[in-house]
Design a protein around this nucleic acid. Sequence first.
DNA 1: ACCTGAACACCGTTCAAGT
DNA 2: ACCTGAACACCGTTCAAGT
Lengths: 209, 209
Amino acid sequence: MKRAAQQDCSPPSPAYHHGDLRQALVRAGLEILEQGGIAALTLREAARRANVSHAAPYHHFPDKEALLTAIAARGFQIQTEEMELAIENARPPIDGLQSFGMAYVAFAAAHPSLFRLMYSHERNDSSENKEMAESSAAGHRRFIERIRERAGCSEERAQSISLLLWASVHGLAMLWLDRQLRWEGVPSLESLASQMTEMLGVVMHSEPT
Amino acid sequence: MKRAAQQDCSPPSPAYHHGDLRQALVRAGLEILEQGGIAALTLREAARRANVSHAAPYHHFPDKEALLTAIAARGFQIQTEEMELAIENARPPIDGLQSFGMAYVAFAAAHPSLFRLMYSHERNDSSENKEMAESSAAGHRRFIERIRERAGCSEERAQSISLLLWASVHGLAMLWLDRQLRWEGVPSLESLASQMTEMLGVVMHSEPT
DNA sequence: ACCTGAACACCGTTCAAGT
DNA sequence: ACCTGAACACCGTTCAAGT
């Protein structure tokens, strides 16, 4: 009922093409990223896929960087959704700490270009980024709390552990995507991640120094 | 004696401008990277700084990507040099494992754009990359050996520990450069790295699972 | 308010031509 | 062998003009 009055699918005008070009551009960007990588992601190509002129995006984004930021923001949403799903469906149900690490690495492997875009290029603290930062911080706080409960340690120490876990899986994912983990007889990314998160369990249950 | 016959510094010809344009381009690239970041690093700008036409680089590199690879390769050399220096001069002399982590993060903080270039964009296995890969693998093997001696564990386990250490400091550096580590009251990067490498000492001296 | 089409400066790449 | 200058296709960005 919130949609515009039905118009039998005839476009309201040959020029005004849809109500939400902004979202269409972000969607197009995700598609380009998946098909051709970051090099193929241009403003003009996104406009082409959205069936508008190459100047149209400038009515929704001040510049290309802003579109990239919006795509990255959408990426963080997708990451949250996919990770929550993966953690729920983990078989056999494994430790929350380990399943977090596995899900993080799995997301990076599934969306390499998007993952790189999200975590690269120091993006300015735009309003969009503030939203992202807040939702990300909230998730982070919940995660720290879970660690604190499970390990029965101080919040300060839980923070240290969570940073170590995050950095480890982030670094593993990045090094893997960059083809840096290719010596003789490399195990799969999955087994590396599993091995790594297991070792981190040792730290979690050890005495603080 | 291997140099060309002395010519009183007068250029051998107004067009042929130096003997080693290739190296000059790499050097120019490093300079651009430090001054303007990855966005400023164009083939034409590198040519400009080397005082040659914009087409000249194509006699030394097949395309832009090849120049980027050469710059990244030089970056790995610089990283090795700077890290060895930093580890030697660590005061007070700290554990080798910890000083490695600190030096790694320090390099990333000192050369953010170069560090990003080195570890990004899946570069093809060009001959240059094979050299890099080999020297990198050799260093890696020495490092694993040191861990094995110190922790008195199997080589397999030493490999796991070294990967955990590498991934941790790499992830920490990346997340820091990407401004992802900015919640309330963030400690300095140095103290985060120190804290992290200390925790990893726990893993190293713990019993294998 | 939202979109177009022309225009500008810049970039990567190619190529015939010069020494 | 190594470099230049012109040329081409593409991109980000701007702007007057249209509805």
